[in-house]
Amino acid sequence: MNLRYLETFLTLCEERSFTNTATRLGCAQSNVTAQIKQLENELSVRLFERMGKTVTITADGARLIPYAKKMLSLSDEMYTLSQTASRLTIGITESIATYLFGDILKEYTAHYPDTEIFLRLLTDEDYCEMLQNGEIDAAIVLDTAIRHKQIKVMGKRKENILLFASSTHDLSGKTHITAEDFTKYATLLPPLFCSYRKLFEQKLHAEGIRPKIALETASAAVIKESSLCGIGIGLLPEFAVKKELIYHLFEKINYKTDFPVYTQILIHQDKWHSKYLEQFLEIAMRHLG
């Protein structure tokens, strides 16, 4: 049913004149007549009696009024909702969510306070598949360079991956660190699926070394707290320990970890960009360089 016909019907109920209804709606009188006739045909009822210039609503027409008003009201509500609120589901790496996402969210909500943001923390899930299936609208990940024919990289920034320890650790301040040191001193590592953990272990394995692991966890905060307690050497992106390095709670461990790991903003190449998603991507790309 065409909602415009219902609007014409309600206007005619008020004006009781085809001429006045046409003037009010800004259309030709023949359009008003045709729309009312089409509505009557669809409903198989007579809505108005036309006797000369007098227009009288029928009993069937009177019964239709509250339903027509309700349908138009729901239509208005639906349109208003689509214009004022939205929901974005963002897949995100835990460390980025904890240490980088706050500034993005702060600016975004200042522009779109009614938009609901749902963060889905990515573990060992295939976020490329999640983008393809529409489970998430976009992804912000810390990984090696993504090359996927259906995934578009909207922004990419290389991250420094650091080994660090408390300022009182035996290796803090030591200028020469060898792979063998990691058999003597415990390490605190992210899970096996983590790209930079894989690269770190590959580098050690190439030298015939298997690191001593005291803790494995997906929580960057737990790795940091455990390192502060002196349990071992942590491995995290620099942005996660930036404040602690400034205040010398942590010291960098002098072992080269120049891994090709990037913060990347991803969407499916065919993803429709609503204004909410477009603005989110623009803000995220600006904050992540």
Rank of each mutant, 00 (worst) to 15 (best):
C128F: 01
L131F: 06
L131W: 06
L131C: 04
Q132I: 06
N133E: 09
E135L: 10
E135H: 09
I136K: 02
D137R: 02
A138F: 00
A139G: 04
A139H: 02
L142G: 13
D143K: 07
D143E: 13
D143R: 08
T144H: 07
T144E: 15
I146M: 13
R147I: 12
R147H: 14
Q150G: 06
I151T: 13
I151M: 12
K152W: 11
M154E: 15
G155A: 15
K156F: 01
R157T: 15
R157Y: 09
E159L: 13
E159H: 07
N160W: 08
L162N: 13
L163F: 11
L163W: 10
F164D: 07
A165C: 15
S167I: 09
T168M: 12
H169F: 15
S172V: 14
G173D: 07
K174I: 14
K174C: 10
I177F: 09
A179N: 04
A179E: 11
D181K: 03
F182P: 02
T183L: 08
K184F: 01
Y185H: 13
L188I: 07
P190D: 01
P190Q: 03
P191A: 00
P191L: 00
P191Y: 00
L192V: 05
C194D: 06
S195V: 00
S195H: 03
L199M: 12
F200G: 04
E201H: 06
Q202V: 00
H205N: 13
A206Q: 15
A206F: 08
I209M: 11
R210P: 00
P211Y: 08
A214K: 07
L215E: 10
A218M: 08
A220D: 15
A220Y: 12
A221Q: 14
K224W: 02
S226M: 11
S227T: 09
C229T: 02
C229S: 12
G230T: 05
G232H: 03
G234R: 02
G234W: 01
P237W: 04
F239T: 03
F239M: 08
A240H: 04
A240T: 04
V241R: 05
K242H: 11
K243H: 12
L245R: 07
L245V: 09
H248P: 01
F250Y: 11
E251K: 13
K252C: 13
K252W: 03
